[in-house]
Design a protein around this nucleic acid. Structure first.
Length: 324
DNA sequence: GCCACCGGTGGC
DNA sequence: GCCACCGGTGGC
């Protein structure tokens, strides 16, 4: 945490259109606990001639409208928001350059998967989004977001002067993909890493979570975790418990990011899905994920937590109402 | 041969 | 309808 990332997240114009500030609806959004935002680079499909960055940019533009609609129509609850930024766009060098992702081809990119670019959490009081400097800090906040709501003052740990009077660090301007994260997910055990991998748009699933053990083993389900712990009693001896693992994935705000499950074969009915009707999904709150990138090993997404305590709803979102 | 990513589905 | 889980495989 030393650097604030405001810069990261601000590539562009996001500050200006503060959707939040001017849009009353946003407040509603705030009542959502956490949201994640992902930027989709995936769509960027081919066109070898174009550069990734450009594509991303244009894509972002398209999404904007959609997002706005969502904002307007919906006011669901976002719980945690993550913001990711697309490295390609923002040029961030921050995170590690480590391995190139599988889809990054040598020259032309045929597709780039989105990755979490930044983590944000919404202030429970003013509802502005504050970027969280590191994934670890984000995970720490997320773990207790319901019992310990996040406020701008909380960010003073890394930004001494910040307060609700300051403009938001990031806003939903359509340049990123946002997703809603789940609140209260345990931090991974020391030495372990929880990775969130965003899948390409149009697939059957939004993302995958996996854990990397201290020895580098990737585990993709609780079953695998259990098995691995059995094979490595030393971890158990160190205090590692299954309750420290969660494979819950955030949900994209863009409703059609994930392909719907097969359209029921109705016989005459237009079984075809109509591409365009999306109704406003949920609020827009959320997180943004960025494009893949440099991000390294962990591309997880940052999350932002929003308020766990929205004045209005007594229950936080959560879980119970998952989705829908 | 490995493994990151994706699809598909059983079970709730 | 959702999601935990895992098989398959393209691309390295």
């Amino acid at each position: 945490m030393e650097r604030d990332h405001p810069d990261i997240a601000t590539p562009g114009k996001m500050d200006q259109n503060d959707v939040q500030g001017s849009n009353p609806d946003l407040n509603k959004v705030n009542s959502e606990p956490n949201a994640l935002h992902v930027s989709t680079s995936p769509d960027i499909t081919e066109t070898p001639t174009e550069k990734p960055a450009e594509k991303v940019a244009s894509l972002a533009g398209e999404q904007e409208n959609q997002i706005r609609e969502n904002e307007e129509n919906h006011s669901e609850n976002a719980q945690n928001q993550l913001v990711l930024y697309d490295p390609a766009v923002s040029a961030a060098g921050e995170v590690e350059p480590l391995r190139a992702r599988r889809n990054s081809f040598p020259n032309y990119t045929s597709r780039v998967l989105p990755s979490v670019g930044a983590f944000t959490v919404q202030c429970a009081s003013c509802f502005k989004w504050r970027l969280i400097p590191t994934k670890e800090k984000y995970e720490e906040i997320r773990e207790h977001i319901l019992e310990q709501p996040f406020y701008c003052e909380t960010a003073r740990e890394w930004r001494p002067e910040v307060s609700c009077d300051d403009p938001p660090d990031i806003t939903q301007d359509g340049s990123r993909l946002w997703a809603i994260d789940r609140p209260n997910i345990a931090q991974p055990p020391p030495g372990w890493e929880r990775l969130l991998r965003i899948r390409a748009e149009g697939g059957t699933k939004f993302a995958d979570v996996y854990y990397v053990s201290p020895s580098g083993k990737r585990l993709r389900s609780m079953v695998e975790v259990l098995k691995h712990l059995e094979e490595h009693p030393e971890y158990v001896a160190q205090g590692v418990q299954t309750s420290q693992f969660s494979f819950q994935i955030p949900r994209p705000l863009q409703e059609d990011y994930v392909k719907k499950r097969r359209p029921p074969p109705s016989r005459d009915g237009p079984s075809d899905v109509n591409p365009i009707s999306w109704v406003a999904p949920d609020g827009n709150t959320g997180l943004l994920l960025g494009g893949a990138g440099p991000s390294a090993p962990s591309d997880t997404a940052p999350l932002d937590v929003l308020d766990g305590n929205a004045p209005k709803k007594p229950k936080l979102m959560g879980d119970s109402d998952s989705v829908i």
